[in-house]
Design a protein around this nucleic acid. Structure first.
Length: 570
RNA sequence: CGGGGUGUAGCGCAGCCUGGUUAGCGCGCGUGCCUUGGGAGCACGAGGUCGCCAGUUCGAAUCUGGCCACCCCGACCA
């Protein structure tokens, strides 16, 4: 491609509405343009990168014996009602009616469609396992789209679904997909980790998220400094601590705490540390209110509570509900004497000896309260979020926190959809059996953004070669010169013939402009052709990553380019 | 949806508080000259329903009300 013909509207300044670096750079590099909130057009460079990722995904999925299909975007409400998700999915599902007043939605994911497809034609265990995938645009009416392609409403996703006859088969498929994902993200030159995750609203029994490590990530990844344990913060397990079994002979005492109510204020006021406090959080769920006790220095993990209670909705209670439940105002709740509500407590509460709790009365707290005798607990569990420095649940190491961008997610779904949608087959004994499903997603457009988050500098994007829209850019410098132009054209042809996507910057621009653009759009290898070096039969080869420049003989250009690209990650 | 903010040329912004001729600046864009190893210079030029609607006023980018869009912070997810 000739730069003079390529549509790359680069920008000198950062667009005002871009916050994160990948968004800024993709706009500045002329890769994408926003149409409306969370919805973007891909320009030639952006689309080329997107397709590079798609191609890697395709190759690795195909190599894992998954088969590509292409499914409808518009889906009838009937299917969603059948799976039960029409009511469950909420406003993220964009619904509308067609001219016949039939209810439809735009597919945010395709479990229903694929399950319907498979149940129609697959009747025998002989047809299983079956693993189908597609790469297409999904629409999720996100509450708050942000950060450009990182959280769009419309985005490109690879989603795959597997159907197995047996549990063992389903687990094997899961492992195959896990391996495929490792290969895919490694090929994208990304630094990532596969972490244990909560299986979320799609449901299912176990799942992994693939997290690209980046400071701007929206997710928190917990990992061990000793072993390879890594988990999403929502999921990260806390090892239960030893229960304290001696009740020291203290008697609860009511103290006035006037207008102090936050953990910080109360502990300062009483001259104790937050770890001596128990915070009593009143939560509203679809099965009624619950009280959850968490140590003062810990954070509630509502996903854990949600899973423990098997409820679908959970949120912090408002002041009115708190009053109804405890009889006291916000900030002074406590478990002592609390009735008519389920009381859950985090494991760490058991290890406390004399704690401070709210008195369920304005301006009063109770001190010297023992979890052993001071109040009733309906269930102990793991209800708090891991924090940096917590012990690893698997070994003696300590947990570290880092930020991650979720680019892939795999679930073993089990029979959730096959049961609700009646996807069955006949097993070898002729018995009708539910298929065991798995689902495997990759945020393709998000992967491009994540790669940029991880690979950039002050001059622009530094594309890893597998994702770069073009691998090489040939930049001619100096005034119009036939020899330079001819050499450039010649090398350009050679590189294309040898499989390198090559850009030729033949614009009548000053060198500075060409260099700035080449850096901004992040082409890995730049070949500069100028008068001085050419007089010696040489051209310059520069790595966008190391910024190192070497002079190479024109005859050796192909080898030198190959060398630089194949040693990119070295 | 709750809280905060912004809307003026393709992009980035000033002007608004304290209404008053022709609405500015930088970048970009067009033409010409010139220049060619890190976003050159000079000259001329094109480009604006000041987000939309209503109101106040002799007069509104500027004041008031309503609406819309977008961005940021929280609950969701690839």
């Amino acid at each position: 491609m000739k730069m003079s013909k390529l549509h790359v509207p680069t920008l000198k300044e950062d667009p005002a509405d871009a916050e994160v670096i990948s968004h800024k750079l993709m706009l500045r590099a002329g890769m994408i343009r926003k149409l409306t909130a969370g919805i973007y057009s891909y320009l030639p460079l952006g689309y080329r990168s997107l397709r590079k990722v798609e191609q890697i995904v395709r190759e690795e999925m195909d190599a894992s014996e998954a088969q590509e299909v292409f499914l409808p975007t518009v889906q009838p409400s009937e299917l969603w009602k059948e799976s039960g998700r029409w009511d469950y999915y909420g406003t993220e599902l964009l619904r509308f009616r067609d001219r016949h007043d039939r209810e439809c939605c735009l597919g945010p994911t395709h479990e229903e469609v694929i399950t319907d497809l498979v149940r129609r034609d697959v009747r025998s265990y002989r047809d299983l396992p079956l693993n189908l995938y597609q790469i297409q645009t999904k629409f999720r009416d996100e509450i708050r789209p942000r950060f450009g392609l990182m959280r769009g409403r419309e985005f490109t996703m690879k989603d795959g679904y597997s159907f197995d006859a047996t549990e063992e088969g389903a687990e094997t498929t899961y492992m195959i997909m896990r391996d495929a994902y490792e290969r895919i993200f490694r090929r994208c030159s990304l630094q990532f980790r596969a972490v244990e995750a909560d299986s979320g609203p799609i449901g299912g029994s176990f799942s992994h998220e693939f997290m690209v490590l980046a400071n701007t990530g929206e997710d928190t990844v917990v990992s061990c400094d000793r072993c390879d344990y890594a988990a999403n913060l929502e999921k990260a397990e806390i090892r239960p601590c030893e229960p304290c079994n001696e009740s020291i002979g203290t008697v609860p005492e009511k103290v006035s705490t006037q207008s102090v109510r936050t953990i910080e204020e109360v502990s300062q006021f009483l001259g104790i540390t937050p770890s001596n406090l128990i915070k009593t959080l009143i939560l509203k769920t679809d099965k009624g209110p619950v009280a959850v006790l968490i140590r003062g220095d810990h954070e509630l993990n509502d996903v854990k509570v949600k899973n423990y209670l098997a409820v679908t909705e959970i949120e912090l209670a408002d002041e009115k509900l708190i009053h109804e439940v405890t009889g006291g105002p916000l900030g002074f709740s406590g478990p002592v004497g609390l009735t008519g509500v389920t009381i859950l407590a985090d494991h760490s509460i058991r290890g406390m000896q004399s704690a401070v709790v709210g008195a369920n009365e304005k301006d009063f707290h109770l001190i010297n309260v023992s979890p052993l005798s001071g109040f009733k607990v309906d269930g102990y569990g793991d209800f708090r979020s891991a924090a940096a420095g917590d012990p690893c649940p698997r070994c003696d190491g300590k947990l570290l926190m880092s930020r991650g961008i979720e680019v892939g997610h795999i679930f073993k779904l089990g029979t959730k959809y096959s049961e609700s949608m009646n996807a069955t087959f006949l097993d070898p004994d002729g018995k009708e059996t539910f298929m065991i499903m798995g689902c495997y997603g990759i945020g393709v457009s998000r992967t491009v953004a994540a790669a940029i988050e991880q690979n950039h500098d002050e001059d622009g994007i530094i594309f890893p070669p597998p994702l770069a829209p073009f691998s090489v850019i040939i930049t001619t410098v100096g005034a119009k010169n036939e020899e330079i132009d001819a050499t450039a054209e010649n090398i350009y042809q050679i590189l294309w013939k040898n499989g390198y996507d090559t850009l030729l910057d033949d614009r009548n621009e000053r060198p500075g402009v060409k260099f700035k653009d080449a850096d901004l759009i992040g082409i890995p290898v730049r070949l500069t052709i100028g008068k001085k070096a050419l007089a010696e039969g040489k051209v310059e080869l520069r790595s966008r990553k190391t910024k190192q420049t070497i002079l190479v003989e024109i005859n050796n250009v192909l080898d030198a380019v190959t060398d630089m690209i194949s040693n990119w990650d070295a």
